[in-house]
Design a binder for these strands. Structure first.
Lengths: 303, 303
DNA sequence: ACAAAAGTGTTAAACTTACACCCATGC
DNA sequence: GCATGGGTGTAAGTTTAACACTTTTGT
């Protein structure tokens, strides 16, 4: 470095540009059985002794202890510390909340809209995290409030679909419902897609919100749609919900829970055959033919 | 808003968290003929009067007028202003540099590594922008320096590939070469992919760099790989390089330039048939059978 | 016996791949 | 005529989708 360069940098005042705070928000998904005793009883009841307990898509939410949005539920997250990569922030926060170190983590969007947080100029980097919920030990309630896994349900209503030669315009309404024991949260999000020759624009807007902090209802929908899309394009991502070994039916159920529609077993198994390896493990004592357990064929995942 | 809430927010000092500067960097790609007179002569020469002039993948770079990396070439970009979404920043910068408003713009990564910029803590949001180069009018050289389209060439060397049942480890070397008239820039980037049961990690590291500012060599490789991957998965993105109407051969060449390998014409045309509509336009006077011109079938792009 | 899940086989349809071939033009 | 690109047909191979069917268990 020349003297001249040193001098220049010394006089350079980075703070002359206004600086936002950088936050991460995390949509932590996991597929789990309902923990409520009511549900468990139902699953264990004599009539259903053969039935596999139903699992659901869950997302981790934390109740806010402070303004703004006091008492509302929010995605876990926090501010980026100096000397920390955004991805590192996300991983740190994730570990603090769930005690899980190696979850699958993927950036899915940046939300920096003015007014999204009344505390000031805050740009949120939103991540999607996928994990096997059984591995996770939720941090006990602290000042940051209670943390719980909410069952997530997303319904799409097609409001408008106009496909022409030179333009397309699609309008969808998404109804998000989140539920943990007797707590029910909800949000309605409008998705507007406009396409022309040289411009495409997709916008999301919250039109209704019950108990969800900030614009997190929007982020949750956005994250879940990203998960669905990636699952359709390339199912490898789904394995992140599974433990080390699993049955093929468990894996298929995971796909179905994400996609929201059933798959044909025979075809599913053929498609997965390359990605899994049979283990010695067998699940017995379930009132039906025992199932082989499989593990990932890691080498095949990456060609 | 309650009084209590107002009070809380009033006392809330957002600046107690250290704040980075937010920048955008843009990898602006376009497919163009070489502009140098030498090349043009070659294309026009008598022997090749039938030949279609060769087009190349280009990326827009700007020569830095100041420290750090004075005189080196950098991706266009700038700092995020208050009241501006990151995406808005990108679009504004893009317009300032190229005079193009509606280019395809996509976020592809966040680079916030410590030490990536000697001026301070700067988090870069990297975007990929695709445009038809003919539409673009480069801003004349100002204080920010000259802007030019550099031909981009990327070569991959596979250094190691270890695929086992329970882990995979892949090491690639990418040699990036950029060229505009007699200016030649280069960089070597190592890509390390490590996969285990519950953890996957991909890292990029610059091991050599000639004339490229900051970590932009890495960003360019990263962006171009993203472009290649998306083209393989779903070719729709390629249409962003094309003008309103084009021949199918032009479109095929665009694919081939991105992918780096030739396609079979018959198959390519069948695959594209749904996405294009024949127009009345015809290209004549080229020493071979005239070509029909097509336009996008916008409605089909979005099902 | 029977309900539930585990697991396999078969077929038609759709798509992909590779290659061969003809067409139209300007010099 | 001929080089060059424009454009189409066909057959083999592969993948997908749908459905029917057999196996194994605990109560």
């Amino acid at each position: 470095m020349t003297e001249e360069e040193k001098e220049y940098l010394k006089q350079y005042d980075i703070t002359k540009y206004q600086q936002p705070s950088i936050a991460t928000d995390m949509a932590v998904f996991s597929i789990m059985e309902d923990e409520s005793t009511v549900e468990q009883e139902k699953n264990r009841s004599a009539e259903n002794y053969r039935k596999i307990p139903e699992r659901k898509m869950k997302i981790l939410l934390i109740q806010r202890g402070n303004y703004p949005y006091k008492d509302c539920w929010a995605l876990p997250g926090g501010f980026c510390k100096k000397g920390e990569d955004v991805q590192e922030t996300a991983r740190r926060e994730l570990f603090e909340e769930t005690n899980v170190k190696n979850a699958y983590l993927q950036p899915i969007g940046i939300f920096g809209e003015v007014g999204r947080d009344p505390r000031g100029w805050i740009i949120s980097h939103t991540f999607m995290a996928l994990m096997d919920g059984k591995k996770c030990k939720l941090r006990a309630g602290t000042d940051a409030g209670e943390a719980h896994w909410f069952a997530i349900q997303l319904e799409k209503k097609e409001m408008k679909k106009e496909l022409k030669e030179d333009s397309a315009s699609i309008l969808n309404e998404y109804c998000l419902k989140l539920q943990y024991e007797n707590i029910e949260l909800s949000a309605t999000i409008f998705e507007k897609k406009e396409f022309e020759q040289f411009h495409e624009q997709v916008t999301y807007e919250i039109t209704e919100c019950e108990g969800i902090a900030f614009d997190h209802g929007k982020l949750i929908v956005y994250a879940f749609l990203a998960l669905q899309k990636q699952t359709e394009q390339d199912g490898k991502i789904v394995f992140n919900f599974m433990p080390e070994t699993f049955t093929l039916t468990e894996l298929q159920k995971a796909f179905e829970i994400i996609l929201g529609y059933p798959l044909l077993t025979a075809n599913f198994r053929r498609k997965m055959a390359d990605y899994v390896i049979e283990t010695e493990e067998i699940v017995e004592g379930a009132g039906h033919r025992p199932a082989k357990k499989f593990k990932r064929n890691v080498g095949r995942f990456y060609q």
